[in-house]
Amino acid sequence: MSVSDLSCLTRHTDGGRVLVDDLGKRYGGAAGVDAVAGVSLDIAPGEFVAVVGASGCGKSTLLRILAGFEAPTSGTVEVGGRPVTRPGPDRGVVFQDYGLFPWLTVAENVRFGLRQRGTPRRRAGQIADAFIEVVGLTRFADRFPGELSGGMQQRVAIARVLANDPAVLLMDEPFGALDALTRTQMQHELRRLYREAGTTVVFVTHSIEEAVYLADRVVVMTGGAAKGVPGHITEVFPVLLGDDRDVNAADFNALERAISERVHAG
């Protein structure tokens, strides 16, 4: 399946710009905890941004606000020029625990969003089939998620959002539950899919290597409620390593080390 095949099947929305301005989030009302504060970020259409940082620094909070699952306490969030107020199909989310519907087959899961948004059954089926092929699961189209391995389930989840043609892809440690081998494989596939789909990607991970391998820019977050300082962005690293990245190359490792130091400096 080539780029052109995919684009003739979908409307092929362009990647959306993501604009976060002075974002703050407090959980639990006035006496609650500040999860993040003063987060500002401008992500270009089609850009791949990875967010790294120690656990509890507010990565998921940021992503969930972008998705529209949580409302910000202060600041603004815009995707594609529109303020985010609720979840919507312009922002596809890939969860660490997949979030597939266990009572639907792979094919039914992948066409679910299309059907919900009124795509006729036949066409939804064609688009779903194409994306199932893209993630290499054609033989498993009629299986149920419970019958698949973790890696295969995450492929289904990725096909499900891509079929829905989002402007922005939000991924929260999507490969965190996978074994090392599957994880590497999924990283390769995601890079390929990202180039074909042309969406903007915000990718949360705690693996710096994964971030450097995948992203155009790596955002480092530190702090967090547990540290007494709200989570915030400390530095943004551009990744100028070209398209063919070698995790063993010297420049790759140098960047990885620089980011790691920033993450652990707190």
Partner: peptide
């Protein structure tokens, strides 16, 4: 998570309940 998945796929409130 399942409700969130449905919502981010563009499912209406009624269908989140029914589907």
């Amino acid at each position: 998570r399942l409700v969130e998945a449905a919502q981010m796929l563009g499912t209406s409130r009624a269908n989140v309940l029914l589907k």
